[in-house]
Design a protein around this nucleic acid. Structure first.
Lengths: 232, 232
DNA sequence: ATATACATTTCGTTA
DNA sequence: TAACGAAGTGTATAT
């Protein structure tokens, strides 16, 4: 990893064209060849960058300024991805051997929500019981297949944030499932759209299609499961 | 901007829990308080981070190790976002005054594609003429509303990459538009799905629904518009 | 390799 | 401010 702090100008041409006027920025050159251009603010996203695999060629302009040409080794759709960095004044330049990173361990995303709801289907609707998780269909698995108190089949789609495409997904499942004669005997399959947060447009679309919406309290569910399991 | 290279362990608790075992990494502390933890690889996304606004408190453990506690000042949904960084060995530590960045100038995204197609609708289908851009409907604007040589209305949905959700979106528009008596007089509204690249599954779905697919050559369109406008 | 869905998505624009 | 859609999205997973 090489870290350079320098006054620089950056031009990118590839899937789009972008330009950064001359200013002081931080440049990270990772060992896989990727380059990140960071300013002192914004979020974790660099102002500009080049994704690996790519290569950096150091040259000089006619005026003797240092120029880096970063080219992608995997140009998408024939577009030649190129990042040109013109260095005017270098304030800092250091290299560091970091070794390979052991990587990130995550916990708490959609899969966990699905596990918790599979254990407590009654929190979605009274009397709901689990038939199976990841119920397979031709177009992909339904998150939860359940049965309600009246014996009707219920397909549950789980999202962290419930948006319109989630409703579309569940709609496709329901369309397919309601062609299955094994499931359609007891009044067909109805749907429940479950999420920690459901956007208004998604709710409107869901309810318009007869799909029930359920807002899920992740922390409460986790409390039901194991009240001691916190990181610190 | 402070840059630290150090052997460190990172724990995050907030919307999820995440853990990074002890290893050498690059830590960027931006002047808005945000923190980025980068490894020597991957993409531009850090292994872990804290978005601004947030604050860093430096402390020490019982064993005398340096510890940074980064807390978000805008916790989302009541979740207390916290990042704890335990520093074992510092290889590099420097601070730099970058000033404010003039910012990025972009060109070439979906909006531009829409402008170009609005100027040259004939490239989508022979004899196609523009009625209006951003044609308003109850569920959002249709990218282009056109009329074909036979006088039939044509709704055009434009995407950079044509995927299944774009077809769904256009389908919803067509469903709604075909309820409008003003538009349905001349054989209803048909659809064109235009993109620089159309994924096979999206194409199958579109054609199954009677929606025409059009692959758009952005560079050629831009050439029609202004052949001299290239960056380098 | 391709397709699909998720993301501590982030980043705009608009109502 | 909230919501909605795009992103040079990236990333993991299953096909």
């Amino acid at each position: 990893m090489r870290i350079v702090v320098a006054r620089c100008q950056v031009d990118y041409a590839g899937r789009l064209s972008a330009h950064l006027p001359m200013a002081t920025r931080v440049l990270m050159l990772k060992s896989d060849g990727s380059v990140l251009v960071h300013s002192d603010g914004g979020s974790y996203k660099p102002l500009n960058w080049m994704s690996p695999p790519c290569s950096v060629r150091e040259g000089a302009t006619d005026e003797g300024q240092i120029e880096w040409i970063v080219t992608s080794k995997a140009p998408s759709k024939g577009q030649p991805d190129t990042l040109r960095i013109l260095l005017e004044e270098i304030h800092h330049d250091s290299s560091h051997d970091l070794g390979i990173d052991p990587g990130l361990q995550k916990d708490g995303v959609e899969k966990h929500l699905q596990e918790l709801l599979a254990e407590h289907p009654g929190t979605l609707a009274d009397g709901l019981t689990l038939v199976r998780r990841e119920y397979p269909t031709a177009i992909g698995p339904v998150d939860l297949m359940c049965r309600d108190a009246g014996g009707q089949s219920v397909a549950v789609e789980i999202k962290r944030r419930g948006e319109i495409d989630g409703v579309e997904q569940l709609t496709r499942y329901l369309e397919l499932l309601n062609r299955d004669p094994l499931l359609t005997t007891k009044g067909g399959v109805r749907g429940i759209f479950a999420a920690q947060e459901i956007k208004p447009q998604a709710r409107v679309l869901a309810e318009d299609r007869g799909i029930q919406c359920a807002v899920v309290d992740y922390n409460a569910l986790r409390g039901l499961d194991d009240p001691t399991d916190r990181l610190f």
